[in-house]
Computed example of a mutant assay.
Amino acid sequence: MTQSPESTNAATLAAYEAGAGAYVEGTPATPPDRLTGVFNLLATHVRPPATLLEIGSATGRDADLLEERGYAVTRTDAATSFVNLLRRRGLAVDRLNVLTDEVRGVYDVIYANAVFLHFSRGELVGVLARMLPHVRARGLLVFTVKGGTGEGWSTHKLDLPRHFTYWQEPALRRLVASTGWQVLELTVATGADTEWLTVIARPAV
Score class of each variant (00 low, 15 high):
T2I: 00
T2Y: 10
E6Q: 15
E6Y: 03
S7M: 14
T8F: 06
N9I: 00
A11H: 14
A18W: 03
G19A: 09
V24E: 15
T27D: 06
A29G: 15
P31W: 02
P31V: 05
D33N: 11
G37D: 14
G37K: 13
N40D: 15
L41Y: 06
L42F: 05
L42P: 08
H45N: 10
V46I: 04
P48Y: 04
P49W: 07
T51V: 03
E54M: 02
A58D: 09
T59I: 07
R61P: 07
D62T: 11
D62I: 00
A63E: 11
L66Q: 10
L66R: 08
E67T: 15
E68S: 09
G70R: 11
Y71N: 11
D77C: 05
D77S: 06
D77I: 07
S81E: 08
N84T: 13
L86N: 14
L86G: 09
R87E: 14
R89V: 02
G90Y: 02
A92H: 14
L96Q: 06
N97A: 03
V98R: 01
T100N: 11
E102Y: 00
V103E: 01
A112R: 02
A114R: 02
V115R: 03
L117I: 12
L117S: 05
F119E: 07
R121T: 07
G122E: 14
G122C: 01
M131T: 01
L132T: 00
R136F: 01
R136N: 11
A137Q: 12
F143Q: 08
V145G: 04
G148K: 11
E151A: 13
G152L: 01
S154V: 08
S154R: 13
T155N: 14
H156T: 14
K157L: 12
H163G: 12
F164S: 10
Y166A: 00
Q168F: 02
E169P: 09
L172N: 00
R174F: 08
V176P: 05
V176L: 07
Q182P: 07
L184Y: 05
L184S: 09
L184G: 08
L186N: 04
T187L: 01
G191D: 13
T194L: 08
L197T: 05
V199E: 02
V205R: 02
